[in-house]
């Protein structure tokens, strides 16, 4: 796989935290490649470093060692402003707790990434409405997050992650707050709507019921990636 075809290329990533005077190694010599068009899941027990790794991949946390390139660009080498712009254009986020702005309607929440990218509000909201239609929430565009169910809120979050057509979508436990059926629907939506040849998806999850949606799974433990492979090969 050439560098150009890779969405994510992490080499020898290391990250250490200081807590109570003690050094905690969160990531240790991580090597990971995620191709465009691939849905990669990061799995492992709590505290194994999944969230730290996803934060490094998304460019919102700097690693102490190694390099991590997104679409061939090393974010750590970028100036802060360029990194922000890169993130605003190329990365979409889906969070465990949805993290929708509670005082904004669904359509306003979805339009936020476009507004951050300098798109005018009216245009952004029109496009946000189209994406909400795509995720099956065309009739709830004016609803506040509190007026939506968990599954609907997560669909709004997916719409928000997609609206600016990013090349990488980073999802943190997207189904952990949802029941099985809704979780399957949300994953189906992510796979169908979010994933295509020019985009990669990285999903951190504990939820074994959604492993079958992954193209590959990277198992983590104690700051290391212990194995990477296809779902059947790894779990079967």
């Amino acid at each position: 796989m050439t560098e150009k075809q890779l969405a994510v290329h992490c080499q020898h990533i290391g990250k250490t935290y200081q807590a109570g005077g003690q050094k905690i190694v969160a990531l240790n010599d991580i090597k990971l490649e995620i191709a465009l068009g691939e849905l990669m899941m990061l799995v492992g027990p709590s505290g194994c470093g999944k969230t730290t790794l996803i934060s490094v991949i998304a460019g919102i946390l700097d690693q102490d060692e190694g390099s991590c390139a997104l679409f061939g660009e090393d974010l750590q080498q970028m100036r802060s402003k360029d990194k922000l712009n890169f993130r605003a254009r190329n990365i979409g986020f889906v969070f465990q707790a949805y993290n929708l702005l509670p005082s904004l309607t669904a359509v306003e929440n979805v339009s936020v990434p476009l507004i951050i990218n300098g798109v005018k509000r009216a245009v952004a909201e029109r496009k946000a409405g189209e994406i909400l239609e795509l995720v099956g929430l065309g009739t709830r565009t004016k609803s506040l997050p509190a007026q939506l169910s968990g599954g609907q809120q997560q669909r709004v979050a997916i719409a928000r992650a997609l609206v600016h057509s990013p090349r990488l979508i980073v999802c943190d436990e997207p189904t952990s707050a949802l029941d099985h059926e809704t979780g399957q629907t949300v994953m189906g939506l992510l796979k169908d709507v979010a994933l295509h040849a020019d985009r990669a998806l990285v999903i951190v999850t504990h939820d074994a019921r959604i492993f079958n949606f992954a193209d590959r799974i990277a198992k983590m433990d104690d700051g290391h990636i212990t194995s990477v492979g296809a779902v059947n090969g790894l779990l079967g």
Partner: peptide, 11 residues
């Protein structure tokens, strides 16, 4: 919420 905006690229 500010963190979300920051993560999404708001400076």
């Amino acid at each position: 919420q500010f963190g979300v905006l920051k993560a999404m690229g708001a400076n």
